[in-house]
Design a protein around this nucleic acid. Structure first.
Lengths: 344, 344
DNA sequence: AAAATAATCGAATAAATATTCTGAATAAAT
DNA sequence: ATTTATTCAGAATATTTATTCGATTATTTT
């Protein structure tokens, strides 16, 4: 039925083109003239030469993480895995999110075993990370949304969207939690939770081996931003001892869920259920989340943390005067990448 | 008077940019966003990273020469150096010239010691070669024209032009032979040769350590092309036994200069003078020059030869049935070039 | 042999990258 | 302190490279 002709360019041709282009510095048009082919073909030949390893490009390792801070973090918080993503001096919080997303993706991916169930929340940093997850065809994950949707307009940072994207990238399955994040009262919430569809999602959640969650603060709340909570609501939560939020559940400095009207109105994974997931990874960027992070760890909500350098530095280390100076080791190995993702 | 500020980009920055671009496959614009600089700067950063060796590109060796044919050539003709430049199947003579020029340049350059006097002739292949000579600042050569100019319009293949180019590339001195190649009669020629200026050039020629010369045929003569010789003139030369030409001097199958009216009218290096130059390198492309090449070597006019594969194969080897098949060895080393000439 | 399916090519074009140019900033030399 | 030469950055632009597209050519299947 299917006719297949293997594309056969001789290595000879490829070596010549690569030599003229990379070593002798001719342009593709010049190489084309030299070898009497079109520039388009030279471009393709060179791409093939890189693929075939006739051309190898190696880049000195950029130390994307700060092992020293990671050690401290692990020691201080008792984390299983701590990844501190370095940022260039003067990085904004948006820079930090991007960096965490970019370099944290591979780390997060390494914590996910193929075929497992992954619980995820939303968030800006989460979004960056999900976007950068390696498109690993063989993963075959089941991605499950841990919290209902904040409102009916689906923002690109919402778990609903992130789950979809993540599942697509891994060619896995996405289970959405078709419910608002907050409902008017407990009774409504309970009736939602009683729905077969929702219960099925819960069922999957209980099998989750990994959860990737963002951590919210009271100061910079997504719920206020989206008009779900008022400043007044927030003040009440704060009075109740809340210092942070995960999946719409507010917790105090000990990492215990605060009693509040919201507690009974949120449709999301229970913190106790979260605690049973073997690997819960906090995906965080920013220096304003120290209290929330510390509390979450203290309460056993997080097992691991992927965080930016600034955020790590802001954590309340016992005694660290002048610890900001030169927090990086300086190795200079040359790591070779035989099949670079792209080359231009 | 002069203020100098060393451009200081940290290797850190370079490694990050290089990593994102080459390893992670981001475009320069994306890298720019990531690091909050302009795309222009990313381009410069990457160039610097390559310069500094943070990015290394290695290309599998393209075997530009045919050692097997070179051995045969050396054995057959008793040459000092024989370089046979490979051509892709189906190469035209123009392709061959380009190939000889490109890959032969480095070989020719290696035969030229710094500061020495180099005699050169014109020709299309010579032109390709000269254009590709490495711009070696430290060479400090003296380049001397071996034959007067064919006509008053300076073609880009004329020795006058090639000498100029070659001297410029090496930041050396060029001595032009300000005379027509052919003058009406012996007397005029002798009066030219008596000129102080011309004698000075001859003086330099006698010090030449190397000569790079093209080899002409009767069939495809530059002099006919430029209207200096008629078909009739050529027939007479052929009758006189001429099989080839170097620097406007026609020689017979033994490599001895033919007696002809032109012999006394040409303003160019004498063949005997050429024979005294320690290293005379023939720069040849094309399969139609076998007789001329063989004769020139026989007559001691050439010590070395840089020739294309086709031209080498056309030479009259004693017994070579089926010698065309697979005349190349097949090594596959990876030669690393730490500072590629260009990279895009 | 004919039909069907891919592979491949180069021209045209889209996209990406390198360079030029201008102005601002910096450091050395008055 | 002012001047001067130089570096640097980014916007605009030129150049180069990658991709799309339609036509063509090869290979396999019927």
């Amino acid at each position: 039925m299917s006719a297949t002709r293997t594309p056969r360019y001789t290595d000879e041709q490829l070596r010549l083109a690569a030599r003229l282009y990379y070593v002798d510095g001719l342009g593709q048009a010049e190489v084309a003239q030299f070898t009497r082919i079109s520039q388009a073909k030279v471009s393709r030949l060179l791409a093939l030469a890189r693929e075939r390893g006739i051309v190898k490009i190696s880049v000195a390792e950029y130390e994307s993480r700060s092992p020293m801070l990671e050690d401290k973090l692990r020691a201080l918080l008792g984390l299983e895995t701590a990844a501190v993503i370095r940022t260039l001096p003067g990085a904004t919080s948006s820079d930090a999110r991007r960096a965490v997303g970019h370099f944290g993706a591979a780390i997060a991916a390494s914590l996910i075993s193929p075929g497992s169930v992954v619980a995820i929340s939303g968030g800006r940093t989460m979004r960056e990370l999900v976007q950068n997850l390696p498109a690993d065809k063989k993963a075959g994950l089941t991605v499950v949304q841990t919290m209902g949707s904040i409102d009916s307009s689906v923002a690109p940072v919402d778990a609903l969207e992130l789950g979809r994207v993540m599942a697509r990238r891994c060619e896995g399955l996405f289970l959405s939690l078709n419910s608002p994040a907050f409902v008017p009262d407990k009774r409504t919430r309970d009736s939602f939770l009683a729905l077969t569809q929702i219960r099925a999602v819960w069922q999957h959640l209980s099998q989750a081996r990994v959860a990737l969650v963002g951590i919210g603060t009271l100061e910079n709340s997504i719920f206020v931003e989206r008009g779900i909570l008022s400043a007044d609501d927030l003040a009440k939560l704060r009075d109740g001892g809340a210092v942070g939020e995960i999946c719409g559940r507010f917790f105090n400095a000990e990492g215990q869920e605060c009693d509040s009207p919201w507690r009974d109105r949120v449709v999301s994974i229970e913190l106790d259920q979260l605690r049973t997931i073997p690997q819960v990874v906090g995906i965080v960027a920013g220096s304003d989340r120290s209290a929330a992070i510390a509390a979450a760890v203290r309460g056993g909500l997080l097992k691991s943390l992927i965080i930016d350098e600034g955020g790590a530095n802001a954590l309340p280390f016992p005694s660290m005067a002048g610890s900001h100076s030169n927090p990086h080791s300086k190795p200079n190995g040359n790591s070779s990448s035989s099949t670079p993702a792209k080359l231009k």
